[in-house]
Structures are given as structure tokens and as C-alpha cells.
Design a protein around this nucleic acid. Structure first.
Lengths: 150, 150
DNA sequence: TTATCTGCAAAGCCTTTGCACTTAG
DNA sequence: CTAAGTGCAAAGGCTTTGCAGATAA
């Protein structure tokens, strides 16, 4: 099933109306690259329809997230990012603290260990956030060159 | 070595002056319980010395964090928390999505797996953030009782 | 003395909200 | 028709900043 249909069903199920603007926001979100901030989405939406207000983008982003089409991620740099989460495998991220470049990562070992920890504390695990911070290969090389040069 | 001494050394090393107010903020932070927000710290600091301004608390908190005495953690509820990070073992957190209760967790398996993943992507791992979200035993029981009652 | 620190209030940033107008059903 | 959706601008929460007066070295 496609994400637009899923969103439509989600809205129906909640007794929320569909609207042209909500669909526009969803379309732009689905077309654009992953890991977008609300602000960036607003700008892209405005290219399609400048009449859509910031509030609608934020409100729709919330709905899209509830519908399981977007997932909020935070790298800790002040603004929340949203990535596609419909028909995508779960993953986490590793971020370069120097240049901001990041990669998606995933590990069955970690996931099952997380489950075990939650169980040990009597929790039912629902979800998790994990972000690794380090220095990427490119920045590492730059750093080494600096150290080695006179 | 004690945290106050370490802070003093840290400031000296950076050529930053020590001051009564900075020391007051550090003292209050060291005395208070873990996982405090900046706002909560401001209130506690005001009990000791009402003349200390918000800005100084924020500025000092930044220094304390740089010095490795505090560590910033985010549960994703809007404000950053700070916990003691001097002479403490590394740990992460599991948070109840219903009541907000949380526990500290740690796992060597996860840590070493994180290292492996970072290496696989050519990163040098510096640190990580991990928060598990779930339902705690108390809230689970409440939920079950609700379902079972007429 | 003089560079740094600090309180205050203002501003910044991201996000949410109140309200009158618009639109879907 | 009428309840829900929307733009606008204002406000909210948290944090940072500019500047004149205070303070450490």
C-alpha cells in the first residue's frame, strides 16, 4: 500500500478531514530527501504552494508522524529532523561531530540487547533513540594531515 | 581528585577566571540530585544566592559540561537535563512514556557493538546517546487493571 | 588597573496557539 | 449548513546575547 493511501486511511480512522493542503504537505515530504527539518519542509512546500502557512506544515507534520509515515530524529543541534518511516527498516544514526555528515546504522545485536535490558527492568520496550557521535573518515584524514604538516 | 578542584584546574588551563558565583553554581549542582534541568538549577541556585542571574547559570553550566563534570541528556520532552559526570560510570536511560519515571541502564555488549559499527563505517567513536522508551512496571499494572475492570 | 565576569532585559530560535475566515463533507 | 481546517500574527518555552556596571588578578 502506498503512503498517501495510508495517510488517507489514517485520517478517516481518526475522523479527521482530508484537505488539499495536507495532501500537498505530504506529497512534498514524500518527494524530498530524508532527514529534513520542519523549516526546510516549509521552504519546499512554499515552492509548490506559497499560500500554505507554517502552522499547517507543523500541524501536518505531526499528523504524518502519528500516521507512522514520518519519524522524528534529534541529533541534538537544536531542531528536530523528520525522515521517511513508511515501509522502511528501522535504523539509527552515526554523526560526524566535525562536519555533520551522518550514516544510517542498524544492529540486530543491539536491538535484542535493548529488549533484554528493558525486560530486566520490567519495562515493555516501545521504541528507542540512539545516535553515535564520532569523527568520520574524511575529517579524520584532514586532522592527521594537519598534525603531520609543519 | 574532587570535582571542585577539577573545575578550578579546568578554568586555569583555559585562562578563564574563577569567581564566587561560578563556584556557587558548581556547588549547588554537585549537591543536587542528578538529571536536573537548567531551570531547576536556577531555582536551587537562587535559594543559595538570589542575586545570581539566569545567564550566569546557563554560562556556568556550559563550562561545567565542557569540564566533564556535567553531562547533557535529552529525553525529548523539550528541555535538556544535566547529570553528574565526574567519576561516574557511563550509562544510558530507559524512560516510561506514561509517567516519565526513568532508570539508568548500561550494557557492555551494546557499547562494544557500537564500537564495532563505528569502526565498520570508518568513524572514530567519541560518545553516544541512547534512550529507550517503554512502559514501566507500575504503569503496565495500571493499564492491565483498567482493561480488566468492567 | 583592566580584562573578564555578570545581571538585566531584550532578542533568537523553534514551535504552538487563538481567532476570524475558509473549506470539506 | 456546520464542524473542521487554515493563515496570520502573537505568544510560549528555552536559551543566548549585548551592554553597562561589578569584580578578579
Amino acid at each position: 500500500m502506498d503512503a498517501r493511501q495510508h495517510f488517507s486511511d489514517f485520517l478517516n480512522g481518526k475522523g479527521i478531514r482530508r484537505s488539499t493542503r495536507r495532501n500537498d504537505v505530504l506529497d512534498v515530504f514524500l518527494t524530498c530527501e530524508y532527514h529534513i527539518t520542519a523549516n526546510q519542509l516549509v521552504e519546499l512546500v512554499h515552492k509548490k504552494n506559497p499560500k500554505i502557512g507554517i502552522a499547517t506544515v507543523y500541524r501536518t507534520l505531526k499528523l504524518i508522524t502519528e500516521a507512522g509515515i514520518a519519524r522524528a530524529i534529534e541529533f541534538g543541534d537544536g531542531s528536530v529532523r523528520y525522515e521517511h518511516d513508511f515501509g522502511h527498516e528501522h535504523h539509527d544514526h552515526i554523526v560526524c561531530v566535525r562536519c555533520g555528515m551522518f550514516r544510517e546504522i542498524s544492529s540486530d545485536e543491539i536491538e535484542s540487547e535493548q529488549d533484554a535490558i528493558a525486560r530486566k527492568h520490567g519495562f515493555v520496550l516501545l521504541r528507542h533513540k540512539m545516535v553515535l557521535y564520532g569523527v568520520c573518515p574524511v575529517c579524520r584524514r584532514k586532522q592527521e594531515n594537519q598534525v603531520n604538516s609543519p
